Simulated scan of single mutants.
Amino acid sequence: MRKKTVRRKTNPVRKSKKKAAVFSGNFLRYSIAAVLVVLLAAIGYHYRGGLAYYFGFKSDKILTEENQSKRISDVRNFQVLQKHEGKSIGIDVSEYQGKINWSYVDTLEKKYPLHYVFIRATVGKDRKDRKFQQNWLGAKENKMIRGAYHYYRPNENSLEQAELFIQTVTLKKGDLPPVLDIEKLPKNQSVANLKIGLKRWLKAVESHYGVKPIIYTGERYYDDFLKEEFSDYLFWIANYNFYREEIGDDWLFWQFTEKATVPGIKGKVDVNIYNGDLQQLQFIAVE
């Protein structure tokens, strides 16, 4: 007898699905790459002014890792300055800047005049800035509008801190109002008690000089702790974030970078924008 031949059924190989899977994977990768290219192009277009300036005008500089990092901040700084044409530009300094050759402190990037400078005078209840007197006199001789600030220590007596500032700083006609610099939270007291101390400092200093002080702080600190209860005061806000390019409507000053270079000063310097022009800045000065 003949044996029946049994043919096994085999499932057909569907190559189309495999091709589709490969196609979808490539499509996803290409889509992500395309989005990144568009994003980079958009960023480049947005910062075209700063990029053209710094990769053209400063192309003779050696591209060390430090210079490359600096150029990123330089591009953003240039972009910010471009957006604030006509606003008054200034700096703030302390002993950390070392010896300053004030006769050279005149412009930023050879284009933007520096009209004013805030100078650290005191720290806490017992420390004077080692370069305050030199900087205070140097700024005056350089015909810059000057202002003095106190770095507040939350865990020290507020009235003793105010007294140290008063003993150290003599304001004259044309100087800017005194500044209270508050950046940290207390370790051994509540935030409510901190606010009481800040108000005592502010009132003592205002009573002595006859002018309302300005408060310096970071944007988050301002929003979280000071904005509501200290609304009677004008604020100088620090924000170095890359996405922030314009001064807040309710900010008197904006410290937009801590990585600028200025003639006459070694190392990096903070730069500030006043929310007005030079004439308006002179209007808030001590009479």
Score class of each variant (00 low, 15 high):
residue 1 M to S: 15
residue 5 T to G: 06
residue 6 V to D: 00
residue 7 R to H: 12
residue 15 K to V: 12
residue 17 K to L: 14
residue 21 A to Q: 13
residue 21 A to M: 12
residue 24 S to L: 15
residue 30 Y to A: 14
residue 33 A to R: 09
residue 35 V to S: 12
residue 42 A to W: 08
residue 43 I to Q: 07
residue 44 G to N: 06
residue 46 H to M: 11
residue 48 R to F: 02
residue 49 G to D: 12
residue 49 G to P: 04
residue 53 Y to H: 15
residue 53 Y to E: 14
residue 54 Y to L: 15
residue 56 G to S: 15
residue 63 L to F: 10
residue 64 T to F: 09
residue 65 E to P: 08
residue 65 E to F: 10
residue 67 N to T: 10
residue 69 S to G: 15
residue 71 R to V: 10
residue 72 I to S: 05
residue 76 R to H: 07
residue 79 Q to Y: 12
residue 80 V to G: 03
residue 82 Q to H: 06
residue 85 E to C: 00
residue 87 K to L: 00
residue 88 S to L: 07
residue 89 I to T: 02
residue 91 I to Y: 00
residue 91 I to S: 07
residue 92 D to S: 03
residue 92 D to N: 11
residue 95 E to T: 06
residue 97 Q to N: 10
residue 97 Q to E: 04
residue 98 G to V: 08
residue 98 G to D: 01
residue 100 I to F: 04
residue 102 W to M: 07
residue 103 S to K: 14
residue 106 D to W: 01
residue 106 D to L: 10
residue 107 T to R: 14
residue 109 E to P: 00
residue 109 E to W: 12
residue 115 H to S: 15
residue 117 V to P: 04
residue 122 T to W: 06
residue 123 V to S: 09
residue 126 D to R: 09
residue 128 K to G: 00
residue 129 D to Q: 07
residue 132 F to A: 07
residue 133 Q to A: 12
residue 136 W to D: 02
residue 139 A to I: 03
residue 139 A to S: 10
residue 140 K to P: 05
residue 140 K to Y: 04
residue 140 K to S: 13
residue 141 E to D: 10
residue 141 E to S: 13
residue 145 I to T: 09
residue 146 R to N: 08
residue 149 Y to A: 08
residue 151 Y to Q: 04
residue 152 Y to A: 11
residue 152 Y to I: 06
residue 155 N to D: 15
residue 157 N to H: 11
residue 157 N to E: 13
residue 159 L to A: 01
residue 162 A to W: 13
residue 165 F to N: 08
residue 166 I to N: 01
residue 168 T to R: 03
residue 169 V to A: 07
residue 169 V to E: 00
residue 174 G to M: 06
residue 175 D to Y: 05
residue 185 L to I: 00
residue 186 P to V: 01
residue 186 P to Y: 01
residue 189 Q to I: 13
residue 190 S to I: 08
residue 193 N to K: 15
residue 193 N to A: 15
residue 197 G to K: 07
residue 199 K to P: 02
residue 199 K to A: 13
residue 206 E to M: 04
residue 208 H to Q: 13
residue 210 G to W: 05
residue 211 V to W: 04
residue 212 K to V: 00
residue 213 P to I: 03
residue 217 T to H: 02
residue 222 Y to K: 01
residue 227 K to S: 09
residue 227 K to G: 01
residue 233 Y to Q: 05
residue 235 F to L: 02
residue 237 I to K: 00
residue 237 I to F: 09
residue 239 N to C: 01
residue 242 F to W: 10
residue 245 E to T: 11
residue 247 I to D: 06
residue 247 I to C: 00
residue 248 G to A: 11
residue 254 W to H: 00
residue 257 T to P: 05
residue 258 E to V: 02
residue 260 A to Q: 07
residue 262 V to G: 05
residue 263 P to F: 05
residue 265 I to K: 02
residue 266 K to V: 12
residue 270 D to N: 12
residue 282 Q to G: 14
residue 282 Q to Y: 13
residue 283 F to Y: 15
residue 283 F to C: 01
